[in-house]
C-alpha cells in the first residue's frame, strides 16, 4: 500500500523534472532573461562575423575564373537564401507547437520569425537580381527556383499580414500556424527546383556529401557568412520575442518590476 504510493510519487517527480524545462521555456520572465543574456554575447559576435565575412568576400578573395567580380554577391545571396529557408522551418514548427500544446511562447516565436524571414528572402531575391543582370543577362526570369523563392516571400508576408488582420490574437496565432504549415510544402520545392526542372539557376555549389563545386579559398568565407546569417537570425528572433513579451505581459508584475529596474539606472 505504502510502496505503491511511493512509486506513484516518484513517477510524478520524474515527470516533473522532465517537464520542468518545458515549463521554464513557457515562463515569460525566464525566457526574457535568458534571451537577454544570450544576446549580450551573441549580438557582438554576429556583427563581427558579418563584418569579417563581408570584407573577406568583397576584398580578399580572388575573382571567379568566368564571372569575374560579380560572383562576390554569393557571400550575401547564398547565406540569406539558406537561412530564409531554415527560418521557415522555425516558424512552421513553432506554429505546430502552439497549435498542439497551446504554448504561448511558441506563438511568440512564430510571430517573431515571420518578418525576419521576409527580410532575408527579400535580400536573397534582390541580390539575385543584381547578380543575374551581369551574368545571365536578365534581372528576373520566371524560373522555377526564382518563382518558388518569390512564393516564400509572399508566405512570410502573408503570416505577418494575417496576424495583424485579426483582433483576437489567439485566433490570429492559429490561422498563422495553419498558413505556415501549409506553406511548408514550398521548402522542398525550392531546394529541389533546380534538379527537377530545367531552370536558369544553377544547382547548389556546397554539397553535403562529396567535394563542393567551389574552391576552398572561396568556400571558407562563404561558410563564415552562412554561420553569421544563422546567428543573425537567432539574434533577431530573440530580440523580436523580447519586445513581443513586454507588450503581451505589460500588465504583469514581472514587467512592472522590469520597468522600475530600468528606470533606476
Amino acid at each position: 500500500m505504502f510502496s505503491r504510493i511511493g512509486a506513484a510519487q516518484k513517477g510524478l517527480y520524474n515527470h516533473a523534472v522532465m517537464w520542468s524545462f518545458f515549463h521554464k521555456l513557457g515562463s515569460p520572465p525566464w525566457l526574457y532573461d535568458i534571451a537577454g543574456s544570450i544576446l549580450r554575447w551573441l549580438l557582438p559576435v554576429t556583427i563581427m562575423a558579418l563584418l569579417v565575412g563581408a570584407v573577406w568576400g568583397l576584398l580578399f578573395t580572388s575573382p571567379d575564373f568566368r564571372q569575374g567580380n560579380s560572383y562576390r554577391i554569393i557571400y550575401i545571396h547564398v547565406p540569406s537564401a539558406v537561412v530564409a529557408l531554415a527560418g521557415y522551418y522555425v516558424m512552421a514548427i513553432a506554429g505546430a507547437v502552439s497549435l498542439i500544446w497551446r504554448m504561448k511562447m511558441a506563438d511568440v516565436a512564430m510571430k517573431a520569425a515571420a518578418p525576419i524571414g521576409a527580410a532575408l528572402t527579400f535580400i536573397a531575391l534582390f541580390t539575385g537580381a543584381l547578380w543575374g543582370k551581369p551574368t545571365w543577362g536578365t534581372w528576373w526570369e520566371w524560373d522555377a527556383r526564382i518563382t518558388s523563392m518569390l512564393i516564400l516571400l509572399f508566405l512570410y508576408l502573408g503570416v505577418v499580414a494575417l496576424y495583424e488582420a485579426f483582433d483576437n490574437k489567439e485566433a490570429a496565432g492559429r490561422a498563422c500556424a495553419i498558413l505556415s504549415l501549409v506553406g511548408m510544402v514550398n521548402i522542398p520545392i525550392i531546394y529541389k527546383s533546380v534538379d527537377w526542372w530545367y531552370s536558369l539557376h544553377q544547382p547548389a555549389s556546397i554539397k553535403f556529401s562529396g567535394e563542393s563545386a567551389i574552391d576552398s579559398s572561396m568556400l571558407y568565407p562563404l561558410l563564415l557568412m552562412i554561420g553569421a546569417f544563422y546567428a543573425l537570425f537567432t539574434c533577431c528572433l530573440l530580440m523580436n520575442m523580447r519586445a513581443e513579451l513586454v507588450q503581451r505581459e505589460s500588465r504583469t508584475a514581472w514587467v512592472r518590476k522590469l520597468v522600475k529596474q530600468d528606470g533606476a539606472h
Binding site: L58, P63, G68, N69, S70, R72, I73, L130, K133, P134
Partner: peptide, 8 residues
C-alpha cells in the same frame, strides 16, 4: 571591380 562594382 572591372565594371561589376555597381552591382556588387
Amino acid at each position: 571591380m572591372e565594371g561589376h562594382g555597381s552591382f556588387v
